[in-house]
Amino acid sequence: MKITAGLGCIDDYKVLVKAGADEVFCGYVPYEWNKKYGTLFPLNRREVLYYNVQINTFEDMKILRRMVDVYKVPVSITFNYLYYLEEQYEMIAKIIKDLMNIGFYEFIIADIALILYLKENNIKCSIYLSGECAELNRLSIDFFNKLNISRYIFHRKNSIEDMKSCINNNEMKNLEYEAFILNERCHYTGAFCNSLHCDEMIHLCKMPYHLSKVSEYANNFEEVDRRLELYYKELDNKYNEEIYMENEDEMEDSYIFGKTGCALCSLKELEKAGITHLKVVGRGNSIENMERDVRNLKKAMDMLDDTEDSESYEKVVKDKLLHGKCNGECYYSTRRI
């Protein structure tokens, strides 16, 4: 299995490569797109401009290509939005052709219509089906095989059994399969989520909520309001604490491995299921934390060969990487190690 990690700016590439990433993915949104469509029609579901989530100039992409030539770790480009306007396909095709002209040939795409558009216009690139497309079962895989997909990226809500069934029943061989392994575990399925991830508003997936029976819904506004009040109070406290710590030059290490999503305990099962690539979500994350994520994941992968079964592997991971603790943010396993 190989590690694929997300970057938010070209400076992150060298750091991730040296940490042990076998592949890198990034978003590219040129100025011309932002000028015409703004953040309401994002290319890759990252409408953020305030911090480094994607690359915004073609010159930076040229520099990144030169870095790939030196370090030999490939980069794939994301086009993760669920759908585009008809008038946008021509512009997207031009962006892709420009990237291909400088040496980028792998693209992560979620919109089936865009995949068909590229095929009909004879734009021959390598397509990784985005997890935002939500391939659910072997029947959906059979359909997508007609589109010359070279890699399937399973979405967050696939179980390992689902993935295994899709892989084993796929008549197309020598394909690649990617699964989420670290960060950004979400309670939504990307293909059915129409929220924005922008600077102006808090991400919907981070809003506090309250689960209850539908018949009791009308009685829960008070509880939701209470949670919202607590949430914003915690934000204010955190902000004030950070300002204080910066002034005192005593910034503490807040890194927690797998804090927002972790599948380390399922690594053995993912390998047996036929997963070839492990996704470390990282666009917009601290590069220092991403570096540690990749290094720690590399250590966990080394432990696979030293253990015979899942039980012994989980114990080793618990003792050596998680120090006996589990944050409970498991992607696939119902067990807690």
Rank of each mutant, 00 (worst) to 15 (best):
P208D: 06
G27R: 02
A19N: 01
K279A: 06
P74W: 04
Y244L: 15
N240W: 08
I256Y: 09
L136A: 10
Y83W: 10
T57V: 06
V317S: 08
L182W: 01
S212C: 15
E288V: 11
A273N: 03
K36I: 09
E229A: 12
V75H: 03
N296E: 07
G20E: 04
L82T: 04
E86V: 11
G131V: 03
E229R: 13
H187G: 02
L7A: 05
N174G: 05
N122K: 13
I160P: 00
E120H: 11
I287F: 04
E87L: 09
N170T: 01
F143A: 10
I256V: 14
E23W: 10
L43Y: 02
E241W: 09
N137H: 05
C265D: 04
Y331E: 00
I127T: 08
D293Y: 03
V15F: 05
A273E: 00
F154I: 01
E222A: 12
K72H: 06
L43W: 03
H155C: 05
A5T: 14
N219Q: 15
K18L: 11
I96Y: 02
E248D: 10
V214K: 14
L270Y: 00
E86Q: 15
C262G: 03
Y50R: 15
I123W: 07
K298Y: 05
I63L: 14
M100F: 09
C186D: 00
T57Y: 08
K279R: 12
R185K: 13
I127L: 07
I256F: 09
N237H: 12
